[in-house]
Structures are given as C-alpha cells and as structure tokens.
Design a protein around this nucleic acid. Structure first.
Lengths: 143, 143
DNA sequence: ACTATATTTCGCGAGGAGACGAAATGAATA
DNA sequence: TATTCATTTCGTCTCCTCGCGAAATATAGT
C-alpha cells in the first residue's frame, strides 16, 4: 500500500459519512447479512447498494464472504477500524431510523433468503404468511 | 435541533473525511491556533480554510473564540465528539504529513501572530531573524 | 447446455463539495 | 474618522458523489 495513515483515516471517515453506509454498519451489529437483505432494508437500487458496500469494504469497515450465489457482509475485524465502528454504533444508538432498520432486519431474517432476493420483501412475506398458515392448519388437523 | 442521531453522526464523520480538516484537528491537539496560523500550515486560500473551519464547527469538533481581530480555534469539548477526535488523532499518529504540520506549527508559534497574518510565513520569519540578530548583537555589546 | 438469478460493472444525469478571487464585514489603530 | 487588515461571505468553476437502469458476470438448478 502506498497510502498514508492520513489517507486511510480519511477513507474510513468518509465511508461512515453517508446515511446509507452508516445504517448498513448499524444493521450489521447483530451479525452477517446478505446483500439482498441489506438492499431490502435500505430500499435502494441493487447497484447503488453495491457501490456503498464497495466503499465500506475499501475502508476495511466490512468484510465479505461469498457463499454460492449470495454474498454475506459482516463487520470487519481490522483493529484499526474497530474503534470507528464502535463510535458509529454509539453515535446512532437510539436513532429512530436505525431502530426501524433493526426491526425490519428482524422481520427479514425470518424469510428464506432465496425468496427475499427473488421476490422482494413484500412478496416473500406474503408467501411465508400463506405457508405458515397452511402448516399451522395441518398441525391443528393432525395433532 | 431537528437533526437525528444519524444525521449528526454523519456530519461528524463527513467533517473528518477530508485531509485538510483532519490535519486541522491534528494540529489543534497541542492547543488553540489562530485562523491565519492554520491557513499558513494548510497553504490554502483563506476563504477555503474558512469553509473547512465552518464544517468542523458545525460538527461540534472545534470551538472558536474571537479575540480582537483574531479568531482562535480549539478542539471542541462536546463529549459526543470527543471519541471521534481521539480516533482521528490515533489514526493519523505517525503520519508523515501530520508530523510536517506539527513541526511547522512549532515554527509558526515562535512568530508574532500579527506578523504572520499580515506578512505571511516566509516574510514574518525573515523579519524575526533580523530582529533576533539585532537583539543578540546588543546583548553581546552590553552584557 | 440452458435458464434463472444474485451481484457487480458501466454509463449517464443531477446535485454537492471544494478550490479560488473579489467583495463584504468587523474590529483595532492612526 | 479614516485606514488597516483578519476573517467571512459570495459567485463561479470544476470535479466528485450518488442515484438509477441496462448490460455483464458468476453461480445454482434443470
């Protein structure tokens, strides 16, 4: 690397200096998320989310793991970036938007990833509702 | 204020996400500096420096104190921004550019502020050299 | 091999950031 | 009061960022 401490610090700070990226960091506190899950929460075009994730990765704030068709994103382990992540998380603690995001993440994690990616959040949720309903009916009929 | 935690955190991170502003924060570690001193170190147009300082102030990272014609800038005391400042300082520790800046600050602080502002660094330094020379000659002649 | 699909890359347009010089402002000093 | 001068504001230019959709890439399933 030919980049100075100054440059890398600027890169980290800049990466955190955007609502979508900061929200992404906050979302990942609870563990890895798939790119399409993040996209569903941010409600941005996949190409836009991809660009944001590239910046976070470049700054060392996140790490990505490819598993089949899906890419799982998690917080980076780099000791240099960790205090920045902690600051960011502390800074947005209690933020309204962030709480909404976390609640949506909870909901989204109940859905199979393949459905969420293919159908989008609303449709995947609808599909799950009907399936769960059918399962519960069967359970009631055959105890 | 109608700004959320998310917004203010973004503002802080963005403010740190520029070399000139990050260097300014690093310069202020040793204490207050006058705007024209900061300008002399950054070697940017006064109007540009003014804009950078406005952003730092807006983010709560710095505080300004007006004293006559001069404006003295120091690190902010806001407990919310303090960890960010500490991160920034830790991040640029040992950076080459920052060390050059600190050395220049040392030199600049030896000059009277009024000379530095009016004449610029080089001329003020030259003026001081001749004055110190004269003083030392007098001291030698009248011990 | 072919299809489906999760993600990235590319190209574009709109808006913001950052640089400067010129002019305005505000506070000492003559 | 007039002047000097540190700093800010304003106008302008250029370049970068961020959004999108379309096309490319890569991987799983048929």
């Amino acid at each position: 690397m030919n980049t100075s401490f100054l440059d890398s610090t600027v890169t980290i700070a800049r990466a955190l200096g955007h609502p979508a990226r900061l929200r992404t960091i906050a979302m990942l506190r609870g563990g890895e998320l798939c790119v399409c899950q993040i996209t569903a929460v941010l409600k941005l075009a996949p190409s836009t989310v991809s660009a944001h994730l590239r910046e976070l990765r470049r700054a060392g704030l996140t790490a990505e793991r490819k598993e089949g068709r899906w890419v799982w994103v998690g917080l980076g382990e780099d000791p240099e970036t960790r205090p920045w992540i902690d600051n960011a998380l502390a800074g947005v603690a209690g933020d309204e938007q962030m709480l909404l995001d976390l609640a949506l993440v909870e909901e989204i994690q109940k859905l199979p990833v393949e459905d969420l990616c293919r159908l989008g959040y609303e449709a995947a949720r609808e599909k799950r509702r009907s399936q769960v309903g059918a399962t519960r009916s069967k359970e009631r009929n055959a105890p």
